[in-house]
């Protein structure tokens, strides 16, 4: 010990002459992005021929409709219970099925967990295709190909959800600390076992939180896809709207609002509990 101490006399070196770097100028990048975004927005508005005048020309019509919408007809409630439940069930079932399917696919779609480049590229390509089709289009496709009703809604939402979940979870996997995985591989584990034991515990809070987010999306989405015949409140909305029953319509909208708000509370509570 004393030998180590005696030989450890610090030798002081004078600090080398230092030169402060010139601050890099980056404002022009931000300015360029801003200009491009503004240009694209204006161009889009012109291209789709937005007619702001229509807002005022139809004002009388609108005020009558709004008047009716402000007076929901609560006696219609019993008729809405079944579709309401159907919407909820559709959302929950789709979320559950998509969550189960998305987990293994996410591991195949992340470079951090999938060592095979061909497999990675193939999975990502398929996922890009799935994600590029909007939920409403899936719904109308399934309504045509399968049948009108909840099953089509579920199939549409499952595909829509897998697209979102795999994207969010696989990108989160890319950003994880891979220390545990490296240790497992160094101990002779294969990739599947290493991913399961070292990466899954690290990703699970994010996975759960994103699944809850997708459930929230599904409540909203399942009403919209109902409009094209995929069951639930959306189909009811389509019916009452066709007959200009705005007193009924406003009740349905109110119910969706309550549903979304309640779910928002539940999910933010659950997220706080699960993700520390």
């Amino acid at each position: 010990m004393s030998a180590a101490v005696s030989m450890s006399k610090p030798t002081e070196h004078p600090p080398p002459a230092q030169q402060r770097p010139v601050r890099p100028r980056t404002w022009w990048k931000a300015a360029a992005v801003l200009v491009v975004v503004a240009a694209v927005t204006v161009w889009s508005a012109i291209a789709v021929e937005v007619d702001f005048g229509a807002l005022f020309r139809n004002a009388g019509n609108a005020s009558r409709t709004i008047g009716q919408l402000l007076q929901p007809d609560y006696s219609y409630f019993p008729e809405t219970v079944r579709p309401l439940l159907e919407t909820l069930e559709t959302a929950v079932i789709s979320t559950a099925v998509a969550a189960v399917l998305s987990l293994p696919i996410s591991f195949l779609a992340s470079r951090a967990t999938d060592p095979s480049t061909p497999l990675l590229v193939a999975v990502r390509f398929v996922m890009n295709v799935i994600r590029s089709i909007p939920d409403l289009l899936y719904a109308s496709l399934f309504v045509t190909a399968v049948a009108t009703g909840a099953l089509s809604g579920i199939l549409a939402l499952v595909l829509f959800n897998i697209g979102i979940l795999v994207k969010l979870v696989s990108e989160a996997l890319d950003g994880l600390d891979r220390g545990g995985q490296e240790a497992a591989l160094a101990a002779g584990s294969g990739w599947i076992k290493a991913d399961r034991s070292a990466m899954l515990p690290e990703i699970s809070p994010i996975y759960i939180s994103q699944t809850i987010y997708v459930l929230e999306l599904n409540i909203r989405a399942s009403t919209v896809i109902g409009l094209v015949g995929a069951g639930g409140l959306g189909m009811l909305i389509d019916k009452v709207r066709t007959f200009y029953q705005y007193h009924y319509l406003s009740l349905v909208i109110l119910e969706i609002l309550v549903l979304v708000v309640v779910l928002e509370f539940v999910s933010s509570y659950a997220r706080r509990k699960l993700v520390r």
């Binding site: 220390g179 545990g180 240790a183 101990a187 699970s204």
Partner: peptide, 11 residues
């Protein structure tokens, strides 16, 4: 193998 940064799965 033992690593400088421990390399545990923290969660």
């Amino acid at each position: 193998m033992v690593f400088q940064s421990f390399n545990l799965a923290r969660r």
